[in-house]
């Protein structure tokens, strides 16, 4: 299996505070990679570096290389192009409230200058179907998303991210605001999407990581402690810190 993304010596700062202290990990195409670790360990910052969202916050800095299909996204590629190829789903469903369901899905296409009504409609239907939302919203595409449940909203966010046809999907704790049933629904969706996309999932939920991911990375205090296939990490963790964390015996973190 080929590597879709290779992260090399990635470092990131918020002001003077170094959040990532040199992370290197290759990520295979069409897999789900879970990134786990205690709060404040840099999980979110890590995936935000993979589509250059980290630098959006003033006072931040990134060093290192991230190779996307052999091209360093921090050198010679426009950040806007990177974000079109690496989609992102956030912790809370951040739907655009001034837009209809349909407009939300095609918002990214609209940015790309695609305006043809039929084309937009086809893509919207296709993406909503991929996100498993089509049957639920097909009759109210042009209503606002206000009536949807938070699980549905999060799937709408996934559909919106898929619409620009990214190659990689970053998911930053996509289920943390959802109830267990809606979470399971999203997990099923991730497994389906794996066939066409490479997914990197940040999660606090160890069961979720164990259920859906192929590979698991354990981050602690800005360092990559362990990165192996998921069964390996959960059954035979090599590092005692990983073992302590996944068994709930407390993480070895210095105070923040």
């Amino acid at each position: 299996m080929s590597y879709k993304l290779r992260v090399e010596a990635l470092q990131a700062w918020y002001g003077q505070h170094q959040v990532l202290k040199g992370i290197s990990m290759p990520i295979r195409a069409n897999t789900i990679t879970a990134v786990i670790g205690p709060s404040g360990c840099g999980k979110s910052t890590f995936i935000r570096c993979l589509n250059r969202m980290h630098e959006v916050v003033p006072g931040t800095r990134v060093a290192g290389r991230v190779w996307l299909d052999g091209r360093n996204i921090y050198n010679g590629i426009n950040a806007v192009e990177v974000r079109r190829r690496v989609g992102m789903v956030f912790q809370t469903p951040n739907i655009f409230p001034a837009m209809s369901i349909f407009q939300n899905v095609v918002a990214g296409l609209y940015l790309n200058g695609i305006r043809g009504r039929r084309q937009l409609q086809e893509r919207a239907e296709n993406c909503l179907q991929q996100a498993g939302l089509w049957e639920e919203v097909r009759d109210r595409l042009h209503d606002t998303a206000a009536g949807l449940s938070s699980g549905q909203l999060q799937r709408l966010c996934i559909a919106r991210a898929l619409a620009v046809e990214p190659e990689i999907l970053l998911m930053d704790e996509p289920c943390s605001a959802l109830d267990p049933i809606a979470s399971i629904r999203i997990e099923e969706l991730m497994r389906e999407l794996k066939a066409s996309y490479t997914i990197i999932l940040v999660t606090h939920n160890m069961q979720q990581a164990a259920r859906v991911s192929d590979y698991t990375a354990y981050l602690c205090d800005g360092e990559l402690v362990e990165y192996e296939s998921t069964p390996e990490v959960f059954i035979r963790p090599k590092d005692s810190r990983t073992e302590n964390y996944i068994t709930g015996r407390g993480a070895d973190t210095r105070p923040l």
């Binding site: 589509n51 969202m53 192009e81 956030f90 655009f96 940015l111 991210a161």
Partner: peptide, 22 residues
């Protein structure tokens, strides 16, 4: 909210598009 801006940025919007569309 920042989440609104980030949603648009993550779709590949330029700063001006973030203002106009989000």
């Amino acid at each position: 909210p920042a989440s609104q801006r980030e949603a648009m940025i993550a779709l590949g919007a330029t700063p001006w598009e973030v203002v106009r569309r989000a």
